Amino acid sequence: MPVTTTVITGATSGIGRETAIALAKKDHSLYLLVRDTAKGEALKHEIILATKNKNIYVVPCDLADLDSVRNAADILKSSLLSINVLINNAGGIFAERQESKNGFEMTFAVNHLGHFLLVQCLLPLLEKGQARIINVSSEAHRMAKPNFNDLQWTKRPYSAWKAYGTAKLFNIYFTRSLAIKYGPKGINAFALHPGLVNTGFGTGLTGIGKLLMALARPFMISAETGAQTTIYLALATRIDAKSGKYFKNREVVSASTAATNQVGRDRLWDLSLGLVEPYLN
Score class of each variant (00 low, 15 high):
23 L>K: 06
39 K>H: 12
35 R>W: 01
67 D>C: 05
100 S>Y: 05
67 D>Y: 08
57 Y>S: 15
5 T>E: 12
75 I>L: 12
94 F>Q: 15
61 C>H: 08
87 I>F: 00
101 K>G: 04
46 E>Q: 14
69 V>L: 11
85 V>P: 03
45 H>V: 08
80 L>V: 08
17 R>S: 02
61 C>E: 10
54 K>Y: 10
55 N>T: 11
2 P>E: 14
7 V>Q: 02
84 N>T: 07
100 S>R: 11
3 V>Q: 13
36 D>P: 05
64 A>T: 14
32 L>F: 07
82 S>F: 07
6 T>I: 12
42 A>H: 07
78 S>N: 15
9 T>R: 02
32 L>I: 09
96 E>A: 08
51 T>S: 11
69 V>S: 11
64 A>E: 12
46 E>Y: 05
57 Y>W: 10
82 S>G: 03
81 L>D: 15
77 K>S: 13
26 K>A: 13
84 N>D: 14
104 F>M: 01
18 E>Y: 02
36 D>F: 04
65 D>M: 07
46 E>N: 12
2 P>T: 15
43 L>Q: 07
47 I>Y: 02
25 K>R: 15
88 N>G: 02
13 S>M: 02
97 R>E: 09
56 I>T: 09
59 V>S: 06
54 K>G: 11
3 V>E: 10
9 T>K: 04
103 G>M: 06
36 D>M: 05
73 A>R: 01
20 A>V: 00
46 E>T: 15
41 E>H: 10
78 S>Q: 13
57 Y>G: 04
55 N>K: 12
71 N>V: 04
21 I>E: 05
69 V>C: 11
15 I>G: 04
61 C>I: 07
91 G>N: 00
99 E>N: 13
51 T>R: 13
45 H>T: 13
54 K>N: 13
84 N>F: 06
11 A>E: 01
29 S>T: 14
36 D>C: 05
100 S>E: 10
38 A>W: 04
94 F>M: 11
48 I>G: 00
36 D>Y: 09
100 S>V: 10
32 L>Y: 03
2 P>A: 11
79 S>Q: 15
82 S>L: 09
104 F>Q: 00
85 V>W: 03
54 K>A: 10
49 L>G: 07
38 A>D: 15
85 V>Q: 06
56 I>F: 07
7 V>G: 00
41 E>I: 15
14 G>A: 04
19 T>C: 12
58 V>P: 09
5 T>Q: 11
53 N>I: 14
81 L>E: 15
48 I>Y: 02
82 S>N: 12
54 K>P: 08
57 Y>E: 09
68 S>R: 14
73 A>D: 05
32 L>Q: 04
91 G>M: 02
72 A>Q: 06
81 L>N: 15
79 S>W: 03
34 V>N: 01
101 K>H: 08
86 L>C: 06
16 G>L: 05
102 N>V: 02
27 D>L: 14
77 K>F: 00
94 F>W: 13
76 L>E: 14
37 T>P: 12
46 E>W: 02
69 V>H: 10
56 I>C: 07
35 R>N: 07
43 L>D: 07
24 A>G: 02
41 E>K: 13
93 I>S: 08
40 G>R: 00
3 V>F: 01
74 D>S: 08
100 S>A: 09
44 K>Y: 03
80 L>I: 09
36 D>L: 05
